[in-house]
Design a protein around this nucleic acid. Sequence first.
DNA 1: GCGACAG
DNA 2: ATCTTGTCGC
Length: 235
Amino acid sequence: MVTAQQLQQQWADMDASRARRIQRDTATQIRLSDDLPPVRTVAGVDVGFENADTARAAIVVLDYRTLEPLDYALARLPVAFPYVPGLLSFRECPVILRALEQLRVAPDVLLCDGHGIAHPRRLGIAAHLGVLTGLPAVGVAKKRLTGRHGEVPEGRGEWTPLLDRAGDTLGAVLRTRVGTRPLIVSPGHRTDLATALELVMACTTRYRLPETTRWADGLASNRGQRWLARLDALR
DNA sequence: GCGACAG
DNA sequence: ATCTTGTCGC
C-alpha cells in the first residue's frame, strides 16, 4: 500500500491541472457496491492545523454499538500542498495515512470530514482515502462543494438527494438534528448511499455531528488536550 | 467573462 | 482550517 512519505514527496508542489488528472484517474477505482463486513468498529478522521505549516491528523476508532473510543492515533506533518477547493485530499491525505499507520485497532469503515463522491470529479477526500487504503469510507461534510438539492425535511434522520447537473445522485443532505443545518453525506468507497446514511445516523446521538467526527475534530484541533484527557478518563 | 468554492 | 467572548435561545 502507499505510504504517507511517498505521497508527501510525490504530491508536494504538484500543479493543479496534474492533480485533477490524477483525480479523474483514481476515481475509476472507486467501488460503490455495499461490500462492508459486519460493522463492529467505526473511525472518525479529521485534520487540523497547528499553524500555517504544520498539519495534525486525528483518527479515533469507536465501538459501533456503544460509540465508546477503542483506540486513537495522532500524526503531524509539514504542510506541502495549499488548500484549493476540490483538491483537499492532496493537502490532507499524507498526514492521515501517517496516523492510520499508527493505529492498533483496525476500523471497519472510515467516516471522513469532507465529501466522498459529492465532488466535481467524484473524488472527494473520503473517496480518495478509501481507494488509497482499500477501506470502506464515507464522506461527512458540513458544507456543500458541488451539486444541487431541494428543501430538506425538518425531521431528524430525514434527507434529500444531492444531484449533479445530469440528475445523478451524488449523496444526501441529511438532517441529523432538528433545528440545525443539515450535513452532506456521500459514499466514498465500498459503500452505497443507503449504508452511508445508516452509518452516520447510527453514530449520531444528541449533536449535529456524529460522534466519530466530534472526537476526531476535537483531537485534531488546538483544544485537543481537552479531548485527550477525556480519553484517559475512560481507561 | 461571471459566480461557486469541502477543510 | 484559524484568530476568539459573550450571548441568544430551548
